[in-house]
Design a protein around this nucleic acid. Structure first.
Lengths: 134, 134
DNA sequence: CAGCATCCAAAAGGATACTG
DNA sequence: CAGTATCCTTTTGGATGCTG
């Protein structure tokens, strides 16, 4: 997803079991993209058109949606299909690879749903403690 | 994880099953942080000291490591323990909450290990096609 | 409808230097 | 050792305006 410089396969090293975070995280699929995982999540159900995605995600701008979709297509996770018509109908669909990625993200998504409040509480508590000690 | 403005609980809406990506992704635990998941992954095994983390992750700067650790502590995912000594020994350990998060990320980590090459290939292929059509 | 181009503000993140 | 503070560059992402 990242546009940055390519990292050669052989610069590994780092974490014990052969997982090199720098390479894996930044050079392969950058979930940093604010919108990648929402898009993958929503596309799990069915192919969607541009404006359908936009209205389901809400808050995403034209620019970010098209930008993110382009990188997903580039990475082989999503296909883009144009039906020639006026106005043109363009729909986006997960590839098998994209499906497997979306699936692997579900446990994390579930974690967020379940524990968002815990994190928020911890944060508030921590911040209050900070105030007292200052 | 994000420092940005707080989002009220009540601004929900968006994706059908009550999962609001904007809120969940950006305001709760921001995996966007380049270093969050490597750190969580490595801490699964055992508590580590600052410099141990730094040498295992390799490529991370002092600044980013301490910055990221601070937010993890703030969010209740990691504890920071100081043993009074000279020089001081500071170690970081996952909380139960942090453990459950790290666990929920494992399928995704595994996906990366398994499919990084597929993505790289798709990208190269796509870029070559781009060149031809330009 | 489905976008791309441009501009701009904010945030991320690296380098360097310094502290207890 | 374990950081913090400062500076600076790069990246992100929203807003706006324009095409086929």
């Amino acid at each position: 997803m990242t546009v940055g410089p390519q990292v050669s396969q052989s610069d590994a090293g780092g974490v014990g079991d052969g997982f090199h975070p720098e390479c894996a995280w930044r050079e392969t699929v950058d979930l940093a993209g604010r919108w990648v995982s929402p898009i993958l999540h929503i596309l799990r159900e069915r192919p969607l058109r541009f404006f359908e995605l936009q209205s389901e995600i809400e808050g995403i701008s034209d620019k970010m949606l098209s930008q993110t979709l382009r990188t997903l297509v580039r990475d082989g996770l999503v296909t883009r299909t144009v039906e020639p018509a006026t106005p043109p109908r363009v729909s986006y669909e997960l590839t098998p690879l994209g499906h497997s990625l979306a699936e692997s993200l579900e446990p994390f998504m579930a974690w967020i749903r379940r524990h968002a409040d815990d994190v928020a509480r911890a944060r508030t508590k921590h911040d209050r403690a900070d105030l007292r000690s200052s």
